[in-house]
């Protein structure tokens, strides 16, 4: 009966469960969500393609004209690309609701204007 008091106390407490789809939790500072490429800064060096452990980043072309394709379904959000980028063109956003049933929506293409 060692838990009798603890159990009684909890009856009158609010449940700790977060009502997820209705109330969204703010991710902590520095959370690694969806990476986003800033194509104004990008120099097309291909470092992100090389370091990515899951080959989620694809680069078409080379140098300043290159287009970046990011496959979200492969991404493991490790943030190595953002860390290795020599010009800090990649940022990890706090977006976390990224799943989808449509695979075509998982491909993000970053083109030069």
């Amino acid at each position: 009966m060692a838990f009798a008091r603890e159990a009684l106390r909890n009856i009158f407490k609010k449940p700790v469960t977060e009502k997820y789809p209705f109330e969204r939790r703010e991710p902590a500072e520095g959370f690694r969500g969806r990476p986003v490429w800033d194509m104004k800064k990008c120099i097309g060096c291909g470092t992100c393609v090389r370091v990515c452990p899951v080959k989620a980043v694809e680069m078409i072309g080379r140098g300043r004209e290159a287009t970046i394709k990011h496959h979200l379904e492969r991404c493991i959000y490790c943030g190595q690309c953002a860390e290795s980028c020599p010009v800090k063109a990649i940022t990890m956003t706090p977006e976390y609701e990224l799943s989808d049933t449509d695979k075509s929506k998982m491909l993000h293409v970053y083109e030069r204007k």
């Binding site: 159990a7 909890n10 009856i11 407490k13 449940p15 700790v16 469960t17 009502k19």
Partner: peptide
């Protein structure tokens, strides 16, 4: 519901 409340659940 009662057991859930005791266990701090919904």
């Amino acid at each position: 519901k009662f057991v859930a409340r005791i266990q701090n659940r919904m």
